[in-house]
Simulated scan of single mutants.
Amino acid sequence: MSGKVVKVERALNGLKHSGRERGFDAAYALIENGYEQCSVDPCVFRKVVDGEVVGLIVPYVDDILVAADEGEREELFASLNKKFPVKDLGECTWYDGCAIAMDVENGITKLSQTAYIESMLKRFDVTTTAFTPAATDADLGPKRDDEPAVDKPVREAIGCLMWTKLTRPDIALPLNKLQKIDHSPSGRIWNALVRIMSYLNFTKDFGITYVRGSGLDLSMFVDASYADNEVDRLSTTGLAGVKEAFFLRGVLSFLASETSGAKIKVLEDNKGALYLIENPFSSARSKHIDVRFHFIRELFKSGKITAEYVLTGEQHADMLTKFLGREELEYHRKALMNLPM
């Protein structure tokens, strides 16, 4: 083959663009079958007949999640099979590395990654347990000059842990800090990763639970740990946030039009921040803030969001900005992940 050029007619598995090309093929096929693509999240499709949503589809590379009645599924699969082989695997209990447990009668759906966590623990030979993902006084700064480098699979472990954040936001803070310094691993950094995995070993059956009947409105907690980075004095912000909430509402309104008018409630424990949102005037001291938060202030003025004060003890976003002790962590974790009593 020396000196020759080979033209690839089709995307090959393993190439970085293959998933993208497969996504285009799936989108074209679904649109041909009467489905429309969500403008907010292009990986979500719906089919509307006589004003009612009769089919919902979420493709991920070559895995397709379908929510539709039997007739619509059979018609869709028959059409898709003309373009590429499709296999109906029945009711979905596992998708994209997540276990899906549904209690239809009581309206409860739980997403968890127990099997994935167990495989990760085995991969890195972690058998210890921990009550929290990080100590309250954890030092997760970059490697110091007097610290020797270690030959540990730091980046590999971080990559595996990042996948668990799909259902485990309780490890987000220490993991995000370690991601920023994975280029210079030390024993301290590796031990911090083992601590996170030990915590997951202790709580591997946890996940996020959704309950029917909890209402259409969206509540979001916003918090920040000001200049907590000792190196560059950047702050850590934790939020189930404004832009994220608008994204979520956009997807929900696409899936179910009755959610399009859902209100977004911002819960903040900083009265000064609430005053800046609600106050249409500014002072010389707040000019630099006005530029960044003009977007949120306009949303408040238009009535698209409301802002309310929440007691510091009820600020559940603390789990995303501060290293908490066991009792505080368990309290905020239960609220954000909707864990049972």
Rank of each mutant, 00 (worst) to 15 (best):
K177I: 14
C92N: 07
F84N: 13
D151P: 08
L178H: 04
A115R: 15
K82Y: 13
W190L: 01
L111N: 02
S119L: 12
I158W: 05
P59F: 08
K83F: 13
C98Y: 04
L175R: 00
P153V: 01
L175H: 01
K122I: 03
I189T: 12
G107Y: 14
R144N: 06
C98L: 09
T127F: 11
V53A: 14
Y116R: 15
L80R: 04
N106M: 10
T109Y: 12
K87F: 11
S112D: 08
K82Q: 15
L161N: 01
A67S: 03
A149F: 12
A172P: 10
W163C: 08
I108W: 00
D151Q: 13
L65G: 08
R188S: 04
G97T: 07
C98H: 02
R144S: 07
P169Q: 10
M120I: 09
I181A: 05
D103S: 02
G159F: 05
F131K: 13
D145G: 03
S112W: 01
A99H: 09
E72W: 08
D96M: 13
W190I: 04
V54I: 15
R123T: 03
L56R: 14
L65Q: 09
N81P: 13
L65F: 14
A78F: 10
R123N: 08
L175T: 01
P133M: 04
G55S: 15
G51D: 08
G159T: 07
E75R: 09
M102K: 05
T132E: 05
R123C: 10
V126A: 06
L166Y: 03
I64W: 00
V48G: 10
E75I: 03
T164H: 04
G187Y: 06
A130H: 03
L166D: 01
W163A: 09
D103L: 06
T93D: 12
G71L: 06
G187E: 07
D170S: 00
G51R: 15
